[in-house]
Amino acid sequence: MFQSEHRQDKSCGRAGSHSLVCEDDRCGSVSRQLSTFDDFRNAITAYRLPRVLIAAIELNLFTAIGTQAWAIPDLARDMKVSERGLAILCRILAMAGLLKKQGEIYRSSRLGATALNARHPAYRGDYLRLITSHWADWGRLPESVKSGLPLDHDELDEPDYRRQFTWAMHHRTLETAPKIAAQIGLRDARTLLDLGGGPGTYAMAFLTKNPSLRATVCDRPAALDVAKEIASTHKAAARLSYLPLDILTEAIPGIYDVIWYSNVLHIYSPQDNQALFRRAFAALNPGGRLLIQDAFLHDREGLFPEEASLFAISMLLFTERGNTYSAAETRAWLTDAGFERIKVLRMKKGTEDWEGGILEARSPETNKKTPVLRTGSVKHLRPRSLS
């Protein structure tokens, strides 16, 4: 999950804490190929409901409603907005299932009253702020198409932003990480490195599933501070350690049975990733496993799945050299680095982060270390994307 260099990172330590790009930019997808003007029009006007949802978040509507029942006049007075505007907004939110309407009275759904309500412990504020910021960012897409550079590329990464982004990535993966960890067998593993692990959400999920495992989360110091806060409330915290590292320029210290590299690949260039694979190879025990979770393209032309294609736009907007890559080209990079037995790990439908999104590669049983090449430092931009 290294926060990406995206300016997700508005980007990452450099490690993948997740691209500061919202991996959930994938929500806007094309359900079929556009062949008529009506298809084209319908695809464009799909912006309407997302904009309604963002407006509700910007107005703190779910926090205002809380767990109470409201008539529109009373709620409008409390929020200091117009009755007409609020009535229309609430009706659409009720249509979408986020509010419950009975006559003239509105209440929040369970989701609205918890994850979207700033007064509730389950509130996911940092992630919501990241999502809403993407509306304006995507509106500036022509700038990046013309320049080939990320938005605001001259802005340096800020520790406070990285902290917020790291919390956002934790909120994003709370449900997904345990589902993934439950399906990846680590019975014979004793040590795991969460490379670019951000908040350590996946590391903690693997520790919970595997009582004999010890894990290390590697990322920038600001991200690791968040990981420590999260782990402090977890029973497995004693088996988790922390490694501050610039993964693009420094060798990985230590030797591990498993390296988990989640939502970091897309932040970097092919050359950066190939160098990083060589470093990972050198840090694995013979027969060790490198597990890569990312938005892989799987068809011959590199167009699908749709989510993976669309996520490349986030990389254009928020990273200097990032992109989404095909499973085939990633497999070739891994082979060149010395890995073998490379395959896609299939997760149960509905549990995966990305469709066909986990590649497994193994170090040979008799591991001959390859030289670790160093690359030049990359300027830390502010990540912004959702990985």
Rank of each mutant, 00 (worst) to 15 (best):
D154W: 14
I180E: 06
K10S: 14
S144I: 10
A238Q: 12
R110N: 11
G322T: 01
T233I: 09
D272F: 02
T166F: 00
A64N: 13
Y261P: 00
F2N: 05
D157P: 06
L345G: 03
P121N: 04
A282E: 04
A237N: 07
K179S: 07
E365S: 12
F296L: 04
V378K: 13
L265F: 07
L297Q: 01
D188K: 14
H380R: 15
A275V: 04
R384D: 13
I65A: 09
P364C: 03
S35H: 13
L345R: 08
C90I: 09
Q183E: 11
W260K: 00
F62D: 03
I88Y: 11
S4Q: 10
A227W: 05
E360I: 07
P211Q: 03
G28F: 15
A223Q: 07
R362Q: 15
E158L: 12
S241W: 02
F37P: 02
D160M: 13
P221G: 03
A189K: 09
P121S: 07
E340G: 10
P73R: 04
D160V: 14
I131H: 04
V81G: 01
E229D: 12
R289M: 10
S363F: 05
L116A: 04
K179T: 07
S377Q: 14
L75Q: 04
G185L: 10
L248W: 00
G125T: 00
E365D: 13
P253K: 04
E320F: 15
A136V: 07
R107E: 12
Y106T: 03
T67E: 09
A223R: 01
R7L: 14
S133L: 09
S29R: 10
R129A: 11
Q102P: 01
A332E: 12
G125M: 05
K179N: 05
S314V: 04
R346P: 06
Q68S: 14
K80V: 12
I255F: 10
G376R: 11
D24M: 05
Y202R: 02
L20M: 09
L89E: 07
D294K: 00
R26L: 12
S241V: 01
K343I: 00
L290T: 08
K10F: 14
P150L: 03
L98E: 08
